[in-house]
Amino acid sequence: GIQEIVAMSPELDTYSITKRVKEVLTDNNLGQRLFGESILGLTQGSVSDLLSRPKPWHKLSLKGREPFVRMQLWLNDPHNVEKLRDMKK
């Protein structure tokens, strides 16, 4: 599951990941809330907090790293936007 992926993950640049996620969401007119609930399993508040103030990787616990790994996996998925759009319906 995701825990193994997080444990094996190389250090991620949390700042550039969140910046990229925000760009993709904005460009495709997708909400942070939808993204947070569907992709990260987080509430709106947690998501906007994460996206606006990402902590550096080395300061995060494994649990804290999980959303960033999920974001990275989502960014790597060529169908990420379509999938999210489908969830919106």
Results as ranks from 00 to 15, higher is better:
G1N: 15
I2L: 08
E4Y: 05
I5W: 10
V6N: 09
A7N: 12
A7H: 11
A7R: 14
M8A: 15
M8D: 14
S9E: 09
P10H: 10
E11Y: 15
L12G: 02
L12W: 02
D13W: 03
D13Y: 02
D13A: 02
T14I: 02
T14G: 01
T14Y: 00
T14C: 04
Y15S: 10
Y15M: 15
S16G: 12
S16C: 14
T18D: 01
T18K: 00
K19N: 10
K19S: 10
K19I: 09
K19L: 09
R20L: 04
R20W: 00
R20D: 05
R20Q: 13
V21I: 10
E23W: 04
E23A: 10
E23T: 11
E23N: 10
E23F: 05
V24W: 02
V24E: 03
T26H: 12
T26V: 09
N29V: 03
N29K: 14
N29I: 03
L30D: 00
G31C: 13
L34M: 11
F35E: 00
G36K: 04
G36D: 03
E37L: 07
I39G: 02
I39K: 04
L40S: 03
G41N: 15
G41Y: 02
G41V: 01
T43H: 09
Q44S: 14
G45N: 15
S46C: 11
S46H: 08
S46T: 10
S48K: 13
S48F: 10
S48Y: 07
S48R: 14
D49G: 06
L50W: 04
L51N: 02
S52E: 13
S52Y: 05
R53V: 08
R53C: 15
R53Q: 08
R53T: 13
R53D: 15
R53K: 13
P54E: 01
P54L: 01
K55G: 07
K55W: 05
K55M: 14
P56V: 01
W57P: 00
H58M: 05
K59W: 07
K59S: 13
L62V: 08
K63I: 15
R65C: 02
E66Y: 05
P67E: 05
P67M: 10
P67A: 15
P67N: 15
F68N: 07
F68A: 00
F68M: 03
V69I: 15
R70F: 00
R70T: 05
R70C: 05
M71T: 01
M71G: 01
M71R: 01
Q72C: 07
Q72A: 13
W74Q: 01
L75A: 01
N76T: 07
N76W: 04
P78R: 06
N80Q: 10
N80C: 10
V81S: 03
V81Q: 03
E82Y: 06
K83L: 07
K83Q: 06
L84E: 01
R85H: 08
R85G: 08
D86K: 13
D86C: 06
M87N: 11
M87E: 14
M87H: 11
M87S: 13
K88L: 05
K88D: 12
K89L: 07
K89H: 10
K89G: 09
